[in-house]
Structure formats: C-alpha cells, structure tokens
Design a binder for these strands. Structure first.
Length: 889
RNA sequence: GGGGGAUUAGCUCAGUUGGCUAGAGCGUUUGACUGGCAGUCAAAAGGUCGCAGGUUCGAUUCCUGUAUCCUCCA
C-alpha cells in the first residue's frame, strides 16, 4: 500500500515528468491578500497570475498547498469530526498551466495519474462535464466531452454537471470557465450492485466522492455580466490530498489513512480509549468524534501558528483560537484530558511532515509552547465554568432548565462555550433555553452597535473640491480653503468636523495618533482661530475635529471666501514622530534579539510614549530588553538619514525585504520607510524623523503581557525619556535625603521596614498585656445572676479589635458568661455583648440584644447569637445602653 | 470602542439581608512517632481583603473612580 508520503511524492514526480515546476506551498495564513484570512484553495497564491497582474515563474507549475476552511458551503467548523471527510486544514494537490497546455493534456494526465500511477480501478471512476447555461450564454463543454469519450472509450461514465457544480468563477468579475470533475465510488461491490455509483455523484455520499476538479479558465467575466474569450487559456486543478489517500489506501474514512492515524494512535495511548471500537463511521460515539476533531484541529492550529498566526481575540487569530478551543473541549469532555494535551501532539506532526513542510519541525518548540499556554488558559476557563454550572444544577434542581440569561452569562463573562453548556446540561437531564440565549446575544450586539454610532449631521459643503490632499509629509503648515463641515453630537457633547482642501494634519492611522493644532480663519468680515483636538481618517478624508466653531453664524459666501491657515502643533508632532521612528528601530532590534517570529500585533504612538505589541511566547528578560535598548540607541547615535520612498509597487517593496504588518491592508503602491537598508525596512504611511539622531534617547518603561503569546512594551524617547530619567533621579535623591544619605539606600529602607514590623509587634504585645490587666480587674467584678456570670463595664481599649479580644478572653475564663462591655473610641460609643452558647435562646440573642441596646446611643448593630457588636453616635447614651443590654438577662 | 466578571495567606480558592476574633486545601516551619526515606499525627507562622475616595455607629461585603487580569460583542 502506498503511504501518504509516497502518494504526494508520486503526484509531484508525475508532473515533473510533464515538465512542471514544483513550487512550495504558500503560508497557510494569507499575508498579502486582504480579502482572505487563510489560503482556502490551491490557486489562491496564483491569483495574480490569472488576473494578469504578475508573471508566473513558469507556464507549468504543480504543488501541494496547505489550506484552511472554517466556513462556507461544506465547511462549518462545528461539523468537522462528525463525518469522515471534512477538515479544517487540508492539502490541495494541483497542477497549473498559464497559457500553456489546455483541456486535452490536463484530462489525459489526470486520468493517467489516477489509473496508471495510483492504479485506481477504472470501473469506479466517473467524470463530469459542464452542461451549458442558456441564461449565462455559455455553451455545453463539447470539447471536454469529446476528450473524455476518447479516453474512456464511451460516454457511459460521463455525467452532465450544472452551473453550480461545473462552472467556476473567482469573483463577480475576472477569469472563469467550466470545469470537469473526477469522482470515485469506494463502496463495496454488493452496494454498487444495488445502486449504481453514477446516481450518487454529487449527492454528498461519504463514499462516492469528488477527488479531482480540473478547471478550464477560458473566459473573462466583464462587469456587465458578459463573457469574453481569453487569449491565454489556463488550467487550474485541485485534488484533495486526504480524500485521494483514502481512495488509494482503500479506507472508508480520511481519518483511517496514515495522515491521521499517527495522531490518533498517540491519542489512544494518552486516553486509554480505542478508536473505532464501535465502528469507525459512528458519529454517535463521541470518543471517536473527539479523536477526529483533535486529529484534524491540531494540524490546522500547528500549521497556522507555524505560518505566523498566533491565537488571539480577533480576526484570523480568533479563528485559530476557536479551532484550538473546540479541540480542547472535545478532548476534555470525551477523552478525559484535564491537562494540556494538544501541545504534546506537535512533535508527532513535526516528524510526519518534516520532508514536505519542514517549517513545522523548525519551529516545533515555539509552536508547542504557544499551544500549551493557550490550553492552560482555556482549561482554567473551563474549570471556572464547570464550577458555576454545578452550582446552577444544584440551585435549579427542580426546574430542570437553565435560563438563557445564565447560559449567556457563562459564555459572555466566563468564556464558557454555549454548546458545551448545552452538552453538559443534556447529560444532567437539563434543558437549555436557547431562545433566551439568542435574545441576550442580540441585546449585546445591539449595545455594541449602538455605542459605536454617533449622531452626525450631513456634511455642509462650502467649496466644491474633489481632491482634498494631505501635504504633511513635506509641510507643517498650509494656506487653504474650507471644503465642508458638519456638526456631530457625541456622548460628551458637541463637536465640529472640518475638511480642508489641503492639510498638514496627520489623521490617526497605523498606530500614530492624529495631529493637533489650529485653523486660522480669515473671512471678509471676521477672523477667528479654531483649536483642532484630533484628526481622524474617514473614507479617505482627513477630518479635523474642533470643539467649537462659529460656522453657523457666518454667511456661506464669507465661508466660501475664507482663507484658512492650518498649522499643526509642531512640538507635539515632533515628539510623535520620534516615537514612531523609534518604534521602527525597536521592531528591527526585537527581531534581532528575540528572533524572526516577532511579528507586530499592534502599536500606538502619541507624543508621550510608544506602545508596541508583538508575538512572543515568554517574558522578555531584562537582559533582552537592555540589548534591544542598546541596539536602538546605537542606531540613534549613528544618525541614519531617513530613506523615504513613495509610490513603490508592492512587489518591489516586498523584494526589498520590507516588513509588512499582518492585518494591514496595502494597495498596489506603498510607501516604504528605510532606516539603514540592512536594518529596518517597513511599509508605513506615518511621519518620521529626518534622521535617527533626532530621537535622542530611547528607554523602555515597561514590559508585560497582553494575552497568551503577545507581549507589550512601552518606551519613551527624546525629551520625554530625559524627563523620565530626571524624575527617577529626583525620587532617589529625595529618598536619600529623607534617609539621611545612607551608603546603601535599599538596605536602610529594608532595615526601616523590619524595625517597623518589630515595633508594631511590641506595641501589640504591650496592649495585649494591658488588656490582660483589664481582664483580671473585670474578672473580680463577676456577679452571679440567674445562673449566669455577669460582667458589665465601661472600659478603655486601644481599638475595636481589642474590645472584641477582651470579651473572648473573658469568655474563656468563665463557665457561663454574660458579658457586656462598652467603650469610647474617637468620640463614638462601641458596645460588645458575649453570652454563653448555653444561654442562647430566641429571646436571649446577642445580635438582638445589641441592636436594642444600641438605640440608646443612636446606633445599630448585629452579629451572631453568642457574640455581637454595635456602634453609635451618642457617647452619652453608652451607660444606658450597657444597662439595657444587661436588663435582658 | 462597549458590556460582564475577577482581584482575600507563598499558591488555588471559600466567605449574603453590612457586624461571624477573615477561613479551607496545598505549600512552609517546628514538634512527636519511625532505623532512614516516605508517611501519619499535633502545632505554629503567614492577611494594608488590588488602590483611592464615599455612604454608615460600623465596609472584605454597598456606591464612585482607578489599576491589573479574564471574557463576550464590534
């Protein structure tokens, strides 16, 4: 039997023999395509070639591509594991022709590979051709039909496919064309005798499956819906590797192939459960389902992390977190893993894929650590949720239902997955109020939406100018005109938004805050100055935000004629750009010190500080931070001139080795910021210092964690860094002065602390001793009354605790105490009542006694049946209160 | 950006009409038993109840602000 490794190799070797260039898989995380989070098909990385935006390295290419799908027609994450053939991550084998060969070769080779190399039985194969679509004005694919007929010798295994199954389009416009699929029937003979496989093609049967899709790109869709015939026709094929292996290895399930069996065997050892004990296909056996879920998900997560996507709380990172958590959940619930287990599977995969995807082996340790951290965090979350659930089961034992609000609270506040709640509830015989949950979720969404919206009036157009422009890269001041303004109501009040023809104000973007400054208006009748508190980008416009503006009192003619001088706050701006340029240097230095896995996760620069989040799995040590500081400050001292390049084609920028930030969208032309081409090259639209020397000084102020796998550092630059150092110095100097300039400041403070603790203990001991004397005196005043030993007195103590202590001490010395003690503390009366447990009854209850008695001193109180305290505000009533308390006996 | 929650001993956490000498388990220290290890038993030490205000006779508990962490939504 061919191993999966051999099957993959045979594919690539076959196409090498047909003069194809083999290229490596693109990273699974789509870094340069803003429309995609992950590679979702074999052709995604070649999109630019089909669109004609780039030239392929060869006209014939073949590869295996790592793909990830979690949503779509057949890929709902929640379904994976319940059947035998759906996956989150999968490999797509493909061969491509860019204006080279077309249908004849593509179909002949496909058939040759399947039947000659892989030796798949011919009588189990079916092929489909496009039947045509009148509405779209696309004809029946006669060409493909004829080719297949000549290959197969007859048309009895050819199926006609409709537009949905057999016409392929990349988007609303662009290259498209019919396709031909090859299906295989893997059912046992007796079933085939009962029902011919031809009837089951494209019918979602787990054993009659499509294994290869050959797309003929021969048209181009225009915006008006019409089709043009392409000059350079292309071939785009995709063969699902996991399914192919199932077919060749004669298995009933993708999970029975050696691709997944390594992992599953380890899972069996770890869990002590046997996979497939009740029949492999069973979706009722949750142990089996769980193993499939884990085996599938660990691949997806491990390779996603390898390709640069850490689990996080939004975007692509959240997708990875959800996949990982789903696997942990299944392992936890059905395989009885209560401790991190996913991370232990990474070495299995690293070994299995070391020849085809060596990147996992290279980053084995890192990937393991990230997954383990994430597992620990989530297991803690699960534990908390389970405890809460247990309480709910106890409290609602008679209702047998968990209301929607509680379910929502579990998920919203404690991150406990809704379906897990439902699952556990079912096991306990509880129902879950799903409608109520959905209502709560809708409310939450509404809240978030509502908050996001501000009430904005329509723009009031003053001057019609279609091209407002930003000139801040070259100027800090502009003499210009008012284009439009509007009034906006926010939660905090009212503000005006102003758009100018030209502006030197940078609008917040890429982490750099917006500029502030002034707008000086000169109209024919008046002059006034507006203070700009912020500048934000909206639909490509620089929107200046001002708190007050007299626009409504000025005629439209005068506004139109107004000359506006826009000036940014230069000092603030210069502090901001120091921080921004320093951030670039810092990123480069971090990568140098910590490694290439350092990827920007977020950044923020204002005039005070630069804050930078990046992916890294452990605390950055003080030594590492110092190294980074040293590198950055060295680069500052080298006074490297800014090399700023505008309108660089994105491909050219990437060739330069530019660092692009994941999650940022880039156009075809980008701005590149270079400080020493060997050190820092970044795609960036922000403002920078003309030379690094201007930054002056760079100093970290903090390092910490934002979430698992992400660290946050903050740093200051320039005058702010100096100010900070001075502040610290001032504190130390002041401390020294206060401590009378000791030789070792730290040691003397420690000594002071120790001394203080010792003295405190001494005072306590003395007070206790004093209390003992009071106690002895009081013991002499014991009066027998109704079988109880009564002590009542007004005493002097240091604090409320001492009074408490005294009553307990007295209790210990007496057989059947009834103690009433009062004291005056800070001008307020305090009362304590202690009665023997044997005396406690409905009427003789310390809490009640004290409450009644406290009325005498205008106060209240409470406590336990045998001991209670009360306070009040009238010292003069203390004596009466004591008497009152005594009178209860 | 908005909502919810958490913050109590070295660690993990309990602690409701505001008054319970602020607790448990693990860990630490000491003592006893044992030939030693391990263990068992007994005892002890260890707390600004995140921080700052406020309400109250009295706040770990209620309110406001703030910091940090968790979590959901956008």
């Amino acid at each position: 039997m061919m191993t999966s490794h051999e099957i993959r190799k045979a594919f690539l070797d076959f196409f090498v023999s047909k003069q194809h260039l083999i290229v490596p898989s693109a990273p699974m995380v789509a870094k340069n395509d803003p429309t995609l989070m992950f590679q979702n098909s074999g052709m995604a990385q070649f999109k630019d070639f089909f669109l004609g935006n780039a030239t392929p390295p060869a006209t014939r290419i073949a590869d295996t591509q790592k793909c990830l799908r979690v949503s779509g027609k057949h890929n709902d994450l929640e379904e994976v594991g319940f059947d035998t053939y759906h996956h989150t991550m999968f490999e797509m084998l493909g061969n491509w022709s860019f204006g080279d060969y077309f249908k004849t070769e593509a179909l002949h080779w496909a058939y040759e590979l399947l039947t000659e190399v892989y030796k798949l039985p011919k009588d189990r194969l079916y092929v489909s051709v496009f039947e045509g679509d009148k509405k779209d004005n696309v004809p029946f694919d006669q060409e493909a039909f004829d080719i297949w007929k000549s290959i197969l010798g007859s048309d009895e295994r050819i199926i006609y496919g409709n537009k949905k199954d057999n016409f392929w389009e990349m988007g609303d416009v662009g290259p498209c064309g019919p396709c031909s699929e090859i299906h295989i029937d893997l059912r046992p003979e007796e079933e085939i005798a009962r029902k011919p496989g031809k009837d089951l093609v494209n019918a979602d049967h787990p054993q009659v499956v499509e294994i290869w899709n050959v797309v003929f790109m021969q048209f181009e869709r225009r915006a008006d819906g019409s089709l043009d015939v392409l000059e350079d026709k292309c071939i785009d094929t995709g063969m699902g590797f996991e399914r192919l292996c199932m077919a060749i290895q004669g298995k009933q399930s993708n999970y029975d192939t050696d691709i997944f069996q390594n992992t599953i065997q380890v899972l069996e050892e770890m869990s002590g459960l046997k996979y497939g004990a009740n029949g492999t296909l069973s979706s009722d056996n949750y142990g089996d389902v769980a193993m499939r879920v884990v085996a599938d998900h660990i691949r997806a997560v491990a390779f996603a992390i390898t390709d640069g996507q850490l689990p996080s709380n939004n975007g692509a990172g959240y997708v990875i977190r959800r996949i990982l958590r789903r696997a942990i959940r299944y392992g936890y619930s059905y395989l009885n893993f209560k401790e991190p287990f996913m991370s232990k599977l990474v070495p299995v995969l690293a070994k299995q894929f070391k020849d085809v995807f060596p990147e996992l082996k290279q980053q084995e340790e890192f990937v393991t650590k990230v997954i383990e951290e994430e597992e620990k965090t989530f297991l803690r979350t699960l534990d908390m949720g389970l405890k809460r659930l247990d309480q709910i089961f106890e409290n609602e034992a008679d209702k047998k239902e968990i209301d929607g609000k509680t379910v929502f609270e579990l998920s919203d506040t404690f991150g406990f997955p809704v379906d897990l709640t439902a699952l556990i509830a079912r096991e306990k015989g509880f129902k879950v109020d799903e409608a109520g949950f959905k209502a709560e979720l809708a409310k939450q969404k509404e809240r978030s939406r509502k908050d996001a919206t501000k009430e904005a009036a329509d723009w009031f157009e003053v001057n019609e100018l279609d091209n407002p422009s930003y000139i801040g890269y070259d100027h800090q001041e502009a003499v210009t005109k008012l284009v439009q303004y509007r009034k906006v109501k926010t939660k905090k009040g009212e503000e005006f938004h102003v758009v100018l023809e030209q502006t030197p104000f940078y609008a917040e973007m890429g982490g750099q805050v917006g500029d502030t400054g002034v707008l000086e208006f000169k109209t024919p009748k008046s002059e006034f100055t507006l203070e700009v508190v912020d500048c934000q980008l909206e639909a490509g416009l620089h929107v200046h935000i001002v708190k007050k503006a007299p626009f409504e009192d000025i005629s439209i003619e005068d506004l139109r004629a107004a000359q506006v001088t826009a000036k940014i706050d230069k000092t603030r701006h210069s502090n901001i750009i120091k921080n921004h340029s320093a951030t670039h240097l810092m990123l480069a230095a971090l990568r140098e010190v910590l490694g290439d896995h350092i990827v920007q996760r977020g950044s923020y620069q204002n005039d005070e500080v630069t804050r930078f989040d990046f992916s890294h799995f452990s605390k950055v040590t003080d030594e590492e931070l110092q190294k980074v500081e040293d590198i950055v400050n060295t680069k500052i001292r080298q006074n490297i001139a800014l090399d700023e390049r505008r309108n660089v084609p994105i491909d050219e920028a990437m060739t330069l080795g530019a660092t692009a930030t994941f999650g940022e969208k880039y156009g075809d032309f980008v701005r590149v910021i270079i400080f020493d081409p060997k050190f820092s090259i970044e795609l960036c639209g922000g403002n920078h210092v003309p030379a690094t020397g201007e930054i002056g000084l760079f100093k970290f102020t903090s390092e910490g964690s934002v979430s698992a796998g992400v660290r946050r550092v903050e740093a200051v630059t320039g005058i702010k860094a100096l100010e900070r150092l001075r502040e610290q110095e001032a504190i130390i100097n002041e401390l020294k002065a206060v401590m009378k300039s000791p030789q070792d400041l730290v040691a003397s403070i420690k000594a002071l602390q120790e001394e203080k603790t010792a003295l405190q203990k001494k005072v306590e001991a003395l007070e206790n001793e004093k209390l003992q004397n009071v106690k002895l005196d009081l013991l002499k005043t014991v009066v027998e009354k109704d079988g109880a030993q009564l002590i009542s007195a007004k005493v002097e103590v240091a604090n409320a605790d001492a009074l408490k202590q005294l009553t307990y001490d007295l209790k210990a010395k007496l057989e059947k105490p009834y103690v009433v003690l009062g004291t005056e503390l800070n001008g307020k009366p305090l009362l304590a009542v202690m009665i023997d447990d044997s005396l406690v009854s409905d009427t003789l209850h310390a809490g009640k006694i004290v409450k009644e008695a406290a009325k005498e001193m205008r106060g209240g109180g409470g406590g336990q049946p045998h001991f209670a305290t009360a306070g009040g505000s009238d010292v003069n009533g203390l004596q009466k209160a004591i008497e009152k308390a005594v009178s209860f006996l």
